[in-house]
Design a protein around this nucleic acid. Structure first.
Ligand SMILES: [Mn+2]
Ligand SMILES: [Mn+2]
Ligand SMILES: [Zn+2]
Ligand SMILES: [Zn+2]
Lengths: 148, 148
DNA sequence: AAAATAATTGAGACTGATTCTCAATTATTG
DNA sequence: CAATAATTGAGAATCAGTCTCAATTATTTT
């Protein structure tokens, strides 16, 4: 999904450009994060790392975020959920099962830019979350409401 | 901006429909909240209320939120910011001064619905935040970069 | 209106998440 | 390699938010 080689270069370049050290802890966390599929929580990273301390996990996730390699969203329950930054996309979040569906729509993006332009606002990034019910949960519900 | 009379009715109706009591604490908090202009933080409400306990402020804001009269967004620094629910709108948030600009665009809304429909997702609500630089901060910046 | 019942409140303890402190360790620089 | 600067780990501290439970207040019932 994401070129690890390239991500490591991005990260080390970022560290150097900021005068930060390249430490095994930082590289380990990045490696772990790159191997996560989809969305993950901080506690996942803490647990999967016997080696690196909790404090450093927090510090390093922040650093990786600052480097632009990961970002986070908030679920309906306000939980922080991280993900590796790929192409830009937005999210649909199921209020029943919590499933997160990613989508991207160029028309939507350009419309947003138009809206900003019309107000003299210079956008750098955005987040959009649509809450609702995913197809699977809709099906499950309609079945429950139609007993045999 | 919002009809207080009507908001109180909405709230008391909600409380009754849920078998909840109509208490002076709840009415006080709602009143305070309705008098807030724009966006406010929980701590604002706690401070402005010598009378009502912290726990009850939290509980009551949750109740008012459940009644659909307020909602919250997260700033760039992850602070919870409440606001009284008016017509639906989205937000532009200035990364320099923190200013929150509200906007509404029907085209954007219908496009979102189309996108959901095309994926079989049944939307109930959404939040969209565009981060960037507001007109005022843009002007300030360009002036600073053009010394006399 | 008083009694009985049900819900709410306040104070402070508690929780879980995140940040901080600082001495010990490790990376970088020349 | 020595000197210097940055990072780390362990646990203390902080912070927002939640919980407990006895005392209080609202609602419902006689
Ligand atoms: Mn995603
Ligand atoms: Mn708003
Ligand atoms: Zn679902
Ligand atoms: Zn601004």
């Amino acid at each position: 999904m994401v070129d690890h080689q390239y991500a490591f270069k991005q990260f080390t370049d970022y560290l150097r450009s900021e005068g930060k050290s390249i430490t095994p802890e930082r590289l380990d966390i990045l490696d772990l994060v790159l191997h996560e599929k989809g969305h993950f929580r901080i506690e996942d990273v803490i647990r999967k790392n016997e080696r690196v301390s909790r404090a450093t996990v927090y510090r390093t996730l922040k650093t990786i975020e600052d480097a632009g390699l990961i970002k986070y969203i908030r679920t309906i329950h306000d939980e922080k959920i991280f993900e590796v930054v790929k192409e830009h996309h937005d999210h649909m979040i199921c209020e029943v099962c919590g499933k997160i569906i990613e989508f991207h729509d160029p028309e939507l993006e350009s419309l947003q830019n138009d809206i900003c332009a019309s107000r003299g606002f210079s956008p750098t990034r955005h987040t959009m979350k649509i809450f609702g019910i995913c197809p699977a949960c809709q099906k499950r519900r309609s079945q429950e409401n139609t007993p045999a």
